[in-house]
Amino acid sequence: MRQWLRLRRPLPPHLATLLGATFLGALFVAWAAATGSGAVNPLFLPAPGAIVHAAIEGLRDGTLLDDTRISLIRITVGWLLSTVAAIPIGTLMGSYPFFNALLEPFVGFIRYLPVPAFVPLSILWFGVDERQKLVLLFIGTFFQEVLMIADNVRAVPQPLLESSATFGFGDREILRRVIVPYALPGMMDTMRITLGWTWTYLVLAEEVAATRGLGHTIMLAQRYLAPERILLGIFVIGLLGMVSDLLFQALTRKLFPWARGVRR
């Protein structure tokens, strides 16, 4: 035991997997025991079986897949809009103090506003259609993402830029052929992390005047006092978020094998 509790000493991979699974398993057993023994009112915490049942029911009537699909589309589009804007703007902010001075105060201001505060405005501006939901996801994601992209770009070491300049590369060329390729793996990390944040705003975006979606189902289940459907929604969101995270990590390793051990 003591040999596994050394500062930063890596664990054997099997043990690492086992540890994570043990903790999850223990939680599950505790949960099943608490609900199965009747110690906890199922209205507050439904039994695992009730959630499986809700999942089967949701699959049978098609609502679960339908909600998941619509939420996935919203997440993807909202996050893509944010990312497509954040990459060029963040790159400019991280490369040219001019653009940073221009935009940083504005971004810094918006960034500290709670996204729920934008719900009334978003309805006022866009009504209750799909755009209103995407705008909330965008606001929640973009203003963080753009600053992180700018930081990814700033991580490119100064000597690399100066060295390139002495080899005769011009500013624009350095931006395109040195800064961007260097910063790409870091940008992938940023995209992965901010995709997680987009997920966290899903329930908020689907809270208002939505008719479908996982967030909407969760809100609806609250109204109908159906806690097993709330937990089902939470599990599906957590699971999809985890899967997207793992896919992103695998993609980064595959696309940028050189980036292991490079500061980003």
């Binding site: 070491p157 390729p181 260097y182 790409l184 050189w258």
Partner: peptide, 20 residues
Amino acid sequence: TGPGPERVMLFQSPALYPWL
């Protein structure tokens, strides 16, 4: 007047392109 290819500089850090 500015950096140019007739004057190449070598730094204390190797300043290599890590993706190449």
